[in-house]
Nucleic acid binder design. Structure first.
Lengths: 215, 215
DNA sequence: CACTAACTGAACCCGCCGGTTCAATATGAA
DNA sequence: TTCATATTGAACCGGCGGGTTCAGTTAGTG
């Protein structure tokens, strides 16, 4: 059997190909969808042989799962960071909310974020369990964080008394809802100006409905 | 409507198999997605031989296109009819808007409507042109109709002066946005009570932001 | 240097399924 | 009845692509 040495520490012979495969897989899946994606192409783009792919991930399906969960966590981290700008709203609440809404909208239009949403939705029939993971990492988590911030604002008397969960849900809907339609499900590229305007009108309606002092 | 009994006995001949194929195709596509859908299964479920399918629609792709456009028009008709309830708002604006919002939410959760959205989105990589058709028939058309109603309401002094297009977009976002998250992309069935509550809070924020007389 | 484990490339197997062919049959119209 | 057309079942082809095998190579380890 194994001697006293750490035989089991998996000292990867080469650089970690695993990450390269995951990255390549996300790109290929995002480009062609699950069914149309060729494992061969993933391997090539990762600079790796096909058997190596099957060595790290037993089959196409588990590779897909691993790819999406990894991407979900990455996207989540980005969005949470964006939301943290609302920690200290400062004097001009409207201005900071405008900025946050704009950044959120931008983040939603980001290629990785869009591809992730698309892949999850598209493959919902075959991988229903992925919804929980991806949505949990993105929508739900973001909504909770937003609700936290809104609760603080209410407590500080800057928003009228309300259910922060509902308010957060609605604010996010106002920001992201029009995006899908306007961008033709991601087909059309939205300009920064469009995003600004969209964010501003979303915040405007939100504040009209929720601000304690509707100035 | 009483002719269904005659179908039981091998109706070999020129009955309108075309519609049967389209219906069956929508179901099968909706169940398995485009790539996983078997033409054989579509034929069987339509009570038809496989060559007959290829006789009416040259190949799987054109069959898919025909299926989706047909479904899109059907869904559109339903939604437009729903919206017409807002033609005569009556005394209690909030009550009628609540009802319309609820019906719209219900319609969005409808199996056919959900499947249509899903199929379009899922296959956007392979059939980018379908977005225009489907979205044109659903989101865009509905938004326009809603904007018309809101413009009337503004003119009648019941809403504050505003851009009816933006207002319509936002109202629809408030109603449909939370649906996707809450229903886990259609995985979870929402109760009627949930839909009612959702519609009411959507209308509430909308009216707080847009009503001329915020009572 | 020897040993082991990961990696490679290319060929290979095999099931799946879109699409076709064809002879037989049913239908509807003239 | 007769002809044209739509339909049927069943078999068949052919490509595609997931997954495997294997002999050979490379790279860390001692």
């Amino acid at each position: 059997m194994a001697s006293a040495a750490a035989v089991r520490t998996a000292p990867r012979g080469r650089i970690d190909k695993r990450q390269a495969i995951l990255d390549a897989a996300f790109d290929v899946f995002a480009e062609h969808g699950y069914a149309q994606a060729l494992v061969q192409e993933i391997a090539e783009r990762a600079g790796v042989a096909k058997p190596t792919v099957y060595n790290h991930f037993t089959d196409k399906e588990t590779l897909f799962r691993a790819t999406l969960t990894a991407a979900a966590h990455a996207v989540m981290d980005g969005n949470i960071a964006t939301l943290d700008r609302m920690r200290s709203p400062g004097e001009d609440l409207r201005a900071t909310m405008n900025e946050v809404a704009y950044q959120l909208a931008r983040s939603c239009c980001d290629r990785r974020s869009r591809s992730l949403r698309w892949l999850t939705y598209a493959q919902v029939a075959r991988f229903p369990d992925l919804i929980e993971i991806v949505q949990g990492c993105t929508s739900v988590r973001i909504a909770e964080a937003m609700a936290d911030r809104l609760a603080r604002l209410t407590l500080a008397g800057r928003l009228r008394p309300c259910d922060p969960a509902v308010a957060a849900e609605q604010l996010l809907a106002l920001v992201t809802g029009p995006l899908e339609t306007r961008s033709r499900l991601g087909t059309r590229k939205l300009t920064a100006a469009e995003l600004r305007a969209l964010a501003e009108s979303a915040v405007d309606t939100f504040l009209r409905a929720y601000a304690a002092d509707p100035r």
